[in-house]
Amino acid sequence: MVMDSRGRLYVANRGNKRVEIFDQRGTYLGQITNAATPYGLAITSDDVIYVADGTAGSEGLTVVNTRNGNVLSHIVGMTGAHMVTVDRRGAIYVAEVRGRAVEKFVRVR
């Protein structure tokens, strides 16, 4: 689970292949269904959500703009991506279960 700048809660629902969105009272607000199967979530201060997908055959990381639901990018080639976090400088860290590694991705400018 992660919370955006507006206080909305994003919950990874791996079994139903979606990220569900709730307000702080628990009222259902919607869902993100274009980000594969969510295993782990991270969100930045500008409300970009990172969704780790550890499903065999589709393993990777999907980046979604929560304000409009658009997929911004997709990073592939991981082995069992389970957890994700993003640091203040924008570096992305993905923990891989089957790969037994932590991958770091840095944007080249």
Rank of each mutant, 00 (worst) to 15 (best):
M1W: 10
M1C: 12
V2W: 04
V2S: 00
M3S: 01
D4G: 04
S5G: 12
G7C: 15
R8C: 02
L9A: 04
Y10V: 00
R14D: 13
G15R: 02
K17I: 08
K17E: 07
R18G: 02
E20V: 13
D23V: 04
R25W: 09
R25E: 08
T27L: 13
Y28H: 12
L29F: 07
L29S: 04
G30W: 13
Q31W: 11
Q31F: 10
I32N: 03
N34I: 13
A35T: 05
T37D: 04
Y39R: 00
L41G: 01
L41Y: 00
I43W: 01
D46E: 14
V48Y: 03
I49V: 05
Y50F: 15
Y50P: 15
A52E: 01
A52T: 03
D53M: 09
D53P: 06
T55S: 05
G57C: 13
E59P: 06
G60S: 15
G60L: 15
V63F: 06
N65Q: 15
T66S: 11
G69F: 11
N70S: 15
N70R: 10
G77K: 15
M83I: 05
V84H: 11
V84I: 08
T85C: 05
T85N: 11
V86M: 11
V86G: 14
D87E: 10
R88T: 15
R88Q: 10
R89Y: 00
G90F: 08
G90K: 08
A91K: 10
A91Q: 11
A91L: 03
A91H: 12
I92W: 10
I92S: 12
Y93S: 02
V94E: 00
E96N: 06
V97M: 10
V97L: 12
R98D: 09
R98M: 04
R100Q: 07
R100T: 06
A101S: 02
V106Y: 08
V106Q: 08
R107N: 05
V108H: 06
V108F: 06
V108N: 02
R109Q: 00
